[in-house]
């Protein structure tokens, strides 16, 4: 049996047997990444709006930095967050290291620049269309950001999904700050890394296929939901 065949076979076996451990791992992956993306959206979307609509000193620097940070290596983010959360670090007293909260924080840091930079572009496009009318109606910039965020909601979905994709796919950051502890901080990607290190390549690849399928499922359901929302005329 070839490597590809055995990988597919173990993927199928994993999906159909779906034992408790795997379900737990998938559940944690989704919880961590969805939470991180929620945090990133709460920060990144308003930040993108502010960078598009407001004029303040240092704005261009922030834009360049954000664009550069879209490609931050997860390991570097993981290490930085590790040093922050470590007992010797500035946030050490909270004892968050090696917990799901630490993983959420690391992924939020990783994903926020992506959401912010991509949504800034959406705000720029919408603002060129809306600016005259909103200024004419007397909307201040803060209000305008809220209005655009609402009206551009369908266009803001892809930036958030891009962030979600990055969050679920990365292994470097969660490995360092989560520690890949069984039943506590073990997620899909760290499990794949672990199985690879054990030489269980078919199992690792099978998990990889499951991860891709999950990501597909999330993207498809968001797509369908936003289509439905658009159709309902909202």
């Amino acid at each position: 049996m070839s490597d590809v065949e055995s990988a597919l076979l173990s993927a199928v076996r994993l999906v159909f047997t779906l034992d408790r451990d795997l379900a737990e791992i998938i559940g944690l992956s989704m919880r961590v990444s969805l939470s991180a993306v929620a945090v990133a959206a709460l920060i990144g979307v308003p930040l993108g709006g502010a960078l598009a609509l407001l004029r303040f000193p240092g704005r261009k620097t922030v834009i360049v930095l954000l664009n550069a940070f879209m490609g931050l290596p997860p390991v570097v983010v993981g290490l930085a967050v590790y040093l922050m959360l470590s007992r010797l670090g500035p946030m050490g007293v909270f004892g968050l290291l090696y917990s799901p909260a630490a993983m959420i924080i690391a992924q939020s840091v990783l994903v926020t620049p992506i959401v912010a930079a991509l949504s800034r572009q959406v705000f720029v496009d919408f603002w060129s269309e809306y600016e005259d009318q909103l200024r004419s109606l007397g909307a201040g910039r803060g209000r305008a950001i809220l209005t655009l965020a609402w009206d551009a909601r369908s266009s803001l979905v892809p930036p958030v999904l891009a962030g979600f994709g990055r969050a679920t796919a990365e292994v470097g950051a969660v490995m360092i700050v989560g520690g890949n502890i069984d039943h506590v901080t073990r997620v899909m990607t760290t499990t794949i890394a672990l199985e690879t290190s054990k030489g269980n390549l078919a199992m690792a690849m099978g998990l990889g296929i499951v991860l891709v399928l999950l990501s597909l499922a999330v993207n498809a359901s968001v797509f369908i939901a936003s289509e439905a929302a658009a159709k309902s005329g909202r």
């Binding site: 269309e129 005259d132 009318q133 004419s136 009206d151 909202r234």
Partner: peptide, 9 residues
């Protein structure tokens, strides 16, 4: 305005 700008609502 010449081209009406409708909010998406």
């Amino acid at each position: 305005f010449q081209r009406p700008m409708m909010l998406r609502r």
